[in-house]
Design a protein around this nucleic acid. Structure first.
Lengths: 246, 246
DNA sequence: TTAGTTAAGTGACATATAGTCACTAATTAG
DNA sequence: CTAATTAGTGACTATATGTCACTTAACTAA
């Protein structure tokens, strides 16, 4: 399974026979994820109750160790861990940052590679409601709860990153169902940014960026029904504000 | 040195007596840095010739293992490694991303936390000229050289991130001397972005953002002398384009 | 059927930012 | 003193965003 990417010289093989992973004094490495969703007009995050020491019984972010024999890379590790808790793969995962210090874990020097992910609430609601050690928590509530390790800090940083994205991209849309309305998306952005936005400006920017496809369907609750949109597939970047290149 | 941040329960101590860092099968962890500078109208990066296996003799990025007994956190690790090669601390360091897979290092599953840093060429020119295993290499040249491990990929990603920053911030200015002229900064941004910029637009944006201080000094070579500026201290963000918050 | 309510979506003008380029300013070389 | 060179500005144009009243399309209750 562990195949060297670069062909080793014979001198290198002599070296490798002696030194392998596990022989080096290296920090403990974990991968964690902040999985966001938007539900009941609130930003929510997935929390998991720890089954093992340290911090047994406390709530924290979903994550875990790299499965050395199974995971091809870090992305695979985070996808496997999220799949284990939600039963599905989130449509958007991106690496946030790594946190490492001598004191963040009582076992000693440790590093976590933290990811940020987004998913529709309904996509995994049943799976999550059926177990007691995994649940959606409103972000504002999670931010003031005592969490395992430095997971509070990871939440703060993930939230700030997502807030930044709301200023110039439609990435937050992955926290909504496949088909969603522009007023829905605007509400999400307003919650993230923390202030109301101009309907006209918001729509104009998104329409001009051509990142969404109008499905033709409508959905209404009370007043005029809104058009349902979906993300345009194969879109590398999700920017809706002009940058200085164009 | 390794003091738990959170006070452990007695049950936890029983656990910790048994399990410590080193007992877990965990990937090899290293920290690498892409140190940029701007010199001779070129973007350059610091490369180091590897003294040990694997990839002994090949050129790669400065970096190394976490010193478990010495480094308080990952930032300390990267600063120590850069200090060892340049003799000084770069004025700007930020984390870029982490790269981990089963195959990027012949020793097995490994992860590197990659940083991006900027420094003035003159700040460490003597130190670097005095040794043969460390040198500045023009980025375009480094990008087509065979480098150790996946360091080529790290270079590509670091360059792209710095290019993005050039579009909306003056962070690249840390690759210049303490005092620099606006035409100098503009040239750097033009090299990064890959196209010429409008002098007036560039100046206007930077002046309006009030991120630079005019030192009153002048420097000229041929024509009218240009004003020398320095970075305004205590500036958290270095954005010079309006964002949608303001 | 119709008037009132609600929420979606648009028209049109005001304001702010960026692009363009000719012009002025300050220095050196000869 | 004049030409060459590079720094820096004035003033207009083009484009993007802010604002808000207005129209549209649904529902509900007389």
């Amino acid at each position: 399974m562990t195949k060297p990417r670069v062909r080793a010289t014979s001198e290198e093989w002599d070296y490798l026979r002696e030194y392998r992973v596990g022989d080096y004094p290296t920090p403990l490495l974990t991968v964690d994820a902040v999985l966001f969703t938007f539900h009941d007009n609130q930003l929510q995050v997935l929390l998991v109750q720890r089954a093992n020491h340290p911090a047994k019984g406390q709530w924290g972010l979903p994550g875990g160790f790299v499965a050395l024999e199974q995971d091809a890379d870090l992305d695979a590790t985070v996808r496997r861990n999220l799949m284990a808790k939600t039963g599905v793969e989130p449509p958007h995962i991106e690496q946030l940052a790594s946190y490492g210090s001598a004191h963040r874990d009582p076992r000693g020097w440790s590093v976590t590679v933290c990811y940020s992910a987004l998913i529709a609430h309904q996509a995994c609601a049943q799976q999550i409601d059926s177990v007691s050690d995994v649940r959606w928590v409103p972000l504002d509530e999670a931010l003031v709860s005592p969490l395992a390790f430095d997971h509070q800090q990871l939440l703060v940083d993930a939230r700030e990153r997502l807030r930044q994205k709301a200023l110039y991209s439609i990435v937050p849309a992955y926290a909504l169902p496949d088909r969603f309305t522009l007023p829905q998306l605007q509400q999400l952005h307003e919650v993230l940014i923390g202030k109301t936005l101009q309907k006209k400006s918001f729509r104009r920017r998104i329409e001009q960026a051509e990142l969404l496809i109008d499905t033709g369907e409508k959905r209404g609750e009370g007043g005029r029904p809104a058009s349902l949109y979906r993300m345009r597939p194969n879109t590398a970047d999700h920017f809706f504000v002009r940058n200085l290149e164009s």
